[in-house]
Simulated scan of single mutants.
Amino acid sequence: MSELILPGEQVPAQHVNLKLGPGLIQSSNVGREGFIISTKAGELKHSANNSRWWIESNARRYVPAPQESVVGVVLARSGENWRVDIGSAHSANLDGLAFEGASKRNRPNLKVGSVLYARVSLAHKDMEPELECFDAQTHKAEGFGELKGGFLVKCSLKMCRLLLDPHHFLLPLLGSRFPLEAATGLNGRVWISTKDVRHTIAISRCIEAVDPDGGGLDEPGVKKLLGTMDL
């Protein structure tokens, strides 16, 4: 069950590899150092193994948190780095070396408008967020990097977390109907790629229909919706 929590409340988050998401910080106050404190009101959530904790709220704007996956759009090049829009209050910085196998002589050739699947490597309220396009432990791409072609769908932050739940019905249901590729960021963006534009439109419409901030459609409702489409 979800637990409602208010700003300033202590959270019983404990794990060997604890990762804090939106709405949670580690307190540095004397006497409370080491405690996990909520910074906003909402529902306290955690992963199945208790390693990831966050506050689910009806926030409209994404607040970056370390180790979260995001879908971003390149805004401009800044020296050897790129400025990337991830839907937060400030654009993020992506180092030209933050890719698998990148070197000073071998860097990705990103253009303005390029879509990226990246991980937040640094997030602080007083600093611009930083991104990386590889797994921090293996330094392999692991699916991160430029997303070529495809279509970008925007949805609520809560919908993105639902899509990242392996037990959620939508993507497996759509994948059983036609081939598709998808990259879901926790910043309210989903990149989808199919071989048929009709399938792309169908996925987009289904995401909008299932989104809790939209129709909130369930699995039978989505199946009925798909039945009305020319697929």
Score class of each variant (00 low, 15 high):
178 F>D: 04
201 I>R: 14
163 L>C: 06
119 R>Q: 14
131 L>P: 01
161 R>P: 01
178 F>G: 05
167 H>Q: 13
178 F>H: 05
199 H>Y: 08
132 E>Q: 15
145 G>P: 10
211 D>E: 10
133 C>I: 04
137 Q>E: 15
135 D>P: 03
174 L>Q: 02
160 C>E: 07
123 A>M: 04
202 A>K: 03
201 I>E: 12
137 Q>H: 13
141 A>W: 00
181 E>P: 00
158 K>Y: 00
172 P>R: 01
132 E>H: 10
194 T>K: 05
198 R>T: 06
209 A>P: 07
176 S>N: 13
189 R>A: 11
188 G>F: 03
137 Q>F: 11
191 W>Q: 09
176 S>C: 08
147 L>N: 07
141 A>C: 00
156 S>V: 04
146 E>W: 01
195 K>E: 14
137 Q>S: 13
199 H>W: 07
152 L>R: 04
128 E>D: 13
198 R>M: 09
132 E>R: 15
158 K>G: 10
194 T>C: 15
140 K>P: 00
154 K>C: 07
200 T>L: 08
162 L>Y: 12
146 E>Y: 02
183 A>F: 01
123 A>S: 12
187 N>H: 08
196 D>P: 00
127 M>Y: 12
153 V>E: 05
181 E>D: 15
152 L>F: 10
159 M>C: 13
205 R>D: 12
